[in-house]
Simulated scan of single mutants.
Amino acid sequence: MENMKKVMVQFDFPNMTSKQYDQVWQDLRAAGHENPKGLIHHVSAQTDKGLKVVDVWENADKFNEFGQTLMPILAKNGITPTQPIVSPLHYEYSGNQVH
């Protein structure tokens, strides 16, 4: 049975550049994943070690399904996959709405 609890997914990509990140999104769009199914929020930030990505997904199953598309695209762009931290969402605030 599908896990229906929202999850926060955090990736740290050592040495990943913003140019590589932008190319990954171009490749995702080209593969028909401009709006990945189940993705609620996505942010990224350059750090002193590379790039950090934080997502909120409808559930872990949706994230894992998207991983089947994402992983080959990361490899194509020379990005070493890292193990994400997946945590059940405890609280979500978006603008003036509490979820």
Rank of each mutant, 00 (worst) to 15 (best):
K52A: 13
T69D: 15
Q83E: 14
N59C: 15
V98P: 00
K6W: 00
L51F: 05
H90W: 11
W57C: 02
E58V: 13
E92W: 04
E58K: 14
F11H: 12
M16E: 01
Y21S: 03
Y91D: 05
S94E: 11
T69M: 14
V54T: 09
L74G: 13
E65Q: 13
M1P: 00
A75V: 13
K37I: 10
P84Y: 06
P14K: 04
D61E: 14
G95H: 10
K49P: 01
T17F: 05
W25L: 11
D48A: 09
F66H: 14
F11Y: 14
D22Y: 07
M71C: 12
V86G: 07
I73P: 06
F11N: 04
A30N: 13
V98K: 08
D48P: 01
K52V: 08
V7T: 02
V56D: 01
S94Q: 05
D27T: 05
T80Y: 07
H42P: 00
L89M: 14
P72K: 15
N77R: 13
T80E: 15
K49T: 12
N3D: 09
S44M: 08
L89Y: 03
P84A: 12
T80D: 15
T47Q: 05
V43H: 11
L74E: 14
M71R: 14
Q83M: 14
L39V: 01
S87V: 14
N59G: 15
V9D: 00
A30P: 03
Q23R: 13
Y91S: 12
Q83H: 08
P14T: 04
Q97T: 13
G38H: 07
M4Y: 00
M1T: 06
K5D: 08
H90V: 12
N59E: 06
A60P: 04
W25E: 05
I79Q: 01
M16K: 02
H42A: 02
T80R: 13
I40C: 05
E34Q: 10
G78I: 10
L51P: 00
G78W: 10
S87Q: 12
P88H: 08
T47F: 04
G38R: 03
I79N: 01
H33R: 06
V24M: 03
G32E: 07
Q68M: 15
D22V: 09
K6Q: 06
D48T: 08
